[in-house]
Computed example of a mutant assay.
Amino acid sequence: MSALTLSVLPGAYAVSQLAPNAPLPALPETRAEAGALWSLTRTAGELSLVCQESAVPDGAKVEGGWTALKLHGPFPFDLTGILTSVLEPLRDAEIGIFALSTFDTDYVLVKAVHLPEAVSVLRAAGHTVLE
């Protein structure tokens, strides 16, 4: 996998969890309300929302303090090793992550307190990180 370009998204993010049968949170009405990243996933076991900390629904179990990094895509579906090339250097530096994917790209969240080290590690691995 060749070097990637990542951007640090503005804002403080949270990963939140609601019951699997909970009503869907209201969609943000504007792009400004949604921020740079708003992702909702329902499985048989949970309803998960990744959003700015200020938009977490009441009653959710929350893990806050995340910063989001966007990998610049789009990436073809048959391209392999994209996330691995980002996650392995972070793993080796013992930086925990939360990853999610969209149709065009991937996002990696790291705790805000680890962002400076994460940026340094990713750059040392040959990636470009735009802040």
Rank of each mutant, 00 (worst) to 15 (best):
L109R: 09
L71P: 00
F103W: 09
F103D: 03
L122F: 03
E131W: 02
G65K: 03
Y107E: 03
A44Q: 15
L18C: 06
P74L: 03
E33K: 09
E29Q: 13
I97F: 07
L47W: 06
E46L: 11
L27C: 09
D106W: 03
Q52A: 15
S85N: 00
T43P: 06
A34K: 03
G126H: 02
S16K: 06
L83Y: 09
S85L: 03
S85I: 00
V129P: 01
A93K: 00
H114Q: 14
L115Q: 03
A36V: 02
V86Y: 00
D104Y: 06
R42W: 04
S54C: 11
G11A: 11
K111M: 11
G45N: 15
G65V: 07
L130C: 10
T43M: 07
N21G: 14
G73F: 04
V50C: 12
K61W: 12
G35D: 08
T102L: 08
V86S: 01
V110L: 08
K70G: 11
K111Q: 15
T84M: 14
V129G: 04
E46R: 12
G35N: 10
V110E: 02
D104E: 11
L6K: 00
L69F: 05
G96T: 15
T84A: 15
T30C: 05
L83Q: 11
P28G: 09
W38T: 06
E33I: 13
A36S: 15
E63W: 09
H127F: 00
T30K: 01
L4T: 02
L130W: 08
P23D: 11
Y107L: 09
G73A: 09
S16Y: 06
A124C: 05
L83S: 04
S39Y: 10
P76R: 14
A112K: 10
A60Q: 08
V121C: 08
A93P: 04
V129I: 04
G81A: 04
S7K: 14
L37Q: 08
H127Q: 03
L18P: 03
P23V: 12
L87I: 15
L90T: 04
L71W: 02
P89N: 06
E46C: 09
D92H: 12
I95E: 02
A125G: 03
D78A: 13
F98L: 11
L9I: 08
A118K: 01
H72D: 13
L130A: 13
E53R: 09
A44E: 15
A36R: 05
V15S: 03
D78L: 04
V113R: 15
